[in-house]
Computed example of a mutant assay.
Amino acid sequence: MIDLGALTLEWGSMLFQFIAFLILLVIVRKFAVGPVTKIMETRRQNIASEIEAAEKNRKESEGFIAEQRRLLDEARQETKAILERASKQAQDEEARIKHEALEAAARIKAEATAEIARETEKAKEELRKQMAGLSVMLASKIIEKELDEATQKETIDQFLKQVGDRL
């Protein structure tokens, strides 16, 4: 026993406590530290595998995104090509319709010109016939009347007045 004043130490009691401490340390190490270490290692492995899976998923997602972007670019190019073809077809159709309209207008104009020429000829022919008839009528009236100049002038004026009323 060691006496330190208010504190006394007993060797037997200290030795017993030291042995109890060592036994408790071995028991804690065997039954507590070992399983806790195993649990911690398992947890570390789970976390590592989850990190690997997350990295793999991220890479797959990046690949998928790149593929989607490529497909979107292809779709845009195809859409642009379709729009260009449609625009070209519309321009071609517009040119064709304009050409057909011009041809139809030219044909109608030619037909109208020909019709006008025919009607003009008919009118001239009718006028010639009327003039011939009027000339004959005038001549017969002049012959019926006396041949003095005043009477002849009056007869012609009356005839022209009658012809003017008919036209």
Rank of each mutant, 00 (worst) to 15 (best):
R76A: 13
T8C: 05
E93I: 04
E67T: 08
N46W: 10
L25D: 02
S61E: 15
E93S: 06
E78G: 01
G63P: 00
D92S: 01
Q68H: 03
E62H: 04
I39G: 03
A66L: 09
R96G: 01
M14C: 05
A81V: 07
Q68D: 03
K80G: 14
S13I: 15
R96C: 03
I51R: 15
I19N: 02
G12S: 09
R44S: 11
E93P: 00
K59T: 09
A53E: 15
E62V: 08
W11T: 13
K59E: 11
E94K: 13
A95Q: 08
R29A: 15
R43M: 07
A20M: 04
E84R: 02
K30G: 03
G12V: 11
R85Y: 02
D73R: 12
A66M: 05
I82Y: 06
L15V: 08
T42V: 05
S13K: 14
A48E: 07
K88H: 03
I27H: 00
Q17H: 15
I51W: 04
I39E: 14
L22A: 10
V28Y: 01
I39P: 00
S87N: 09
R70P: 02
T8N: 09
M40T: 13
L83D: 04
A53D: 14
L25N: 03
R76L: 12
K38R: 11
F16I: 11
I82H: 05
E60P: 00
Q45H: 15
T42W: 14
E67N: 10
A90N: 02
A90Q: 08
